[in-house]
Design a binder for these strands. Structure first.
Lengths: 227, 227
DNA sequence: CTACATAGTGTTTTAATTACACTTATATTT
DNA sequence: AAATATAAGTGTAATTAAAACACTATGTAG
């Protein structure tokens, strides 16, 4: 309120916590920093917001540099604005939970940028306050997977119920009861049974399903956590 | 990532959605703007963040100008960063849900600033994207009152169960069943029965309670919405 | 054709939620 | 001092949701 001359200027960045399920493990995309500060440490992909660029646009721009992306789901986590979070000076970062549709390999440029998937659990020392941001993102994802059909953003368009359950188990870090899970997820009425089966391996083929609605939406009923 | 010269600079402000229960009604603190843009319109209290000032510090500084405050509970809602949200130029605002302990009258300076309590429901035309911010704050409050003991931040330190229930009904915009509400809230074990009653009016006196723990905390069980 | 691996399927028990109506204690009125 | 008005306070039965639990089915590989 006081004076409105040149007050309030600071640098604004965006950071993305990109989750993906790879080799039965929940992964986060991290980048090895090749310059100070925190040289050599892992950090979230992100960067400064350009003039006349929307925040989500900035996230998408940064991410397309590192992945081959068909579609990105973004959900804002909040602003991280501690005065001393960046040793270079004041930088406020708006963090996003990002989910990319599956089977996206990292772009060829990714290697040069030092981008790699890391297990979401063993968060070693990260640059800035990025460890905290990832923890917040994981909590948000845990909430969303129970309250919304956000799984649609993570799974391929055709999937088996076992794959879906596995995703829930990875995110919730909890074993779920197969029969109860199937009953509940079917009761929600968000799945469509396909006329296809997944034939793979020496066992009974699995029925394939898809989401009726491809867009993110809240569910009337939360999917409760079982067992 | 590209160049890190002078990229990303913009103005950063904070805005607060301050709720209070006054005369059996859920109110929001709004300020009548006396200069452009949006001159004459209502807006959230807020202002630019100063150098070396934490975001929450900025909110508290702005709010102490308008209220006599003993304690402020702050919970970040997120960053509102649309390029064109402020006609003066790019301003990113970090919005907060704010609760002030009760019985706080507005400061004497408040009148001069055009600060007044307005019903949280009839949100007339507000400046900037503040209508959207208030809606988000209301949703957050609805969530929190069910998942945490955030009521401790709103009620006086001694209160009756009817007053507590009334708060829940105001926030949730829903009538609750008296017996079910009392059972559930007592089962949570967060209340302490006092050796006092509230004698007021021509009816049976009401038992006074207080919160065992005066600090904000999540609850094991959400308080379900009844009836 | 046997062994193996994962898919698929219901029921019973237990716990939680909901619906619902009368009695009690005080102040005020007559 | 009796009657009335007002909000406080209290329990149970019916319904619905969650949890626990084990076997059969169907394909491939050997």
């Amino acid at each position: 309120m006081a004076n409105e001359k040149a007050e309030g200027y600071m640098r604004v960045a965006v950071d993305a916590v990109v989750f993906s399920v790879i080799h039965e493990d929940l992964k986060v995309l991290l980048i090895r920093r090749n310059k100070p500060p925190f040289k050599g440490k892992l950090a979230l992909p992100g960067g400064f917001v350009e003039e006349n660029e929307e925040l989500e646009g900035a996230v998408k721009r940064e991410l397309t540099e590192e992945t081959n992306i068909s579609r990105i789901y973004l959900h804002q986590l909040g602003a991280y604005g501690e005065v001393k979070r960046d040793p270079r000076g004041r930088v406020l970062s708006v963090a996003y939970l990002a989910l990319i549709s599956p089977g996206q390999e990292l772009a060829s440029t990714a290697d040069a940028l030092g981008a790699e998937w890391h297990s979401a659990d063993d968060l070693r020392e990260l640059a800035f306050d990025h460890k905290r941001i990832i923890e917040d993102a994981l909590n948000e994802l845990r909430f969303e997977i129970q309250a919304t059909n956000v799984a649609v953003q993570i799974l391929p368009s055709k999937f088996t119920l076992s794959e879906l359950q596995h995703l829930y188990e990875l995110v919730l870090k909890k074993d779920l009861d197969k029969r109860n899970f199937r009953r509940r997820i079917k009761e929600l009425g968000i799945l469509k049974k396909l006329n296809e089966a997944k034939m793979e391996g020496a066992h009974r083929p699995a029925q394939l399903y898809t989401f009726k609605d491809k867009d993110y939406q809240p569910l009337k009923d939360r999917i409760q956590v079982f067992t």
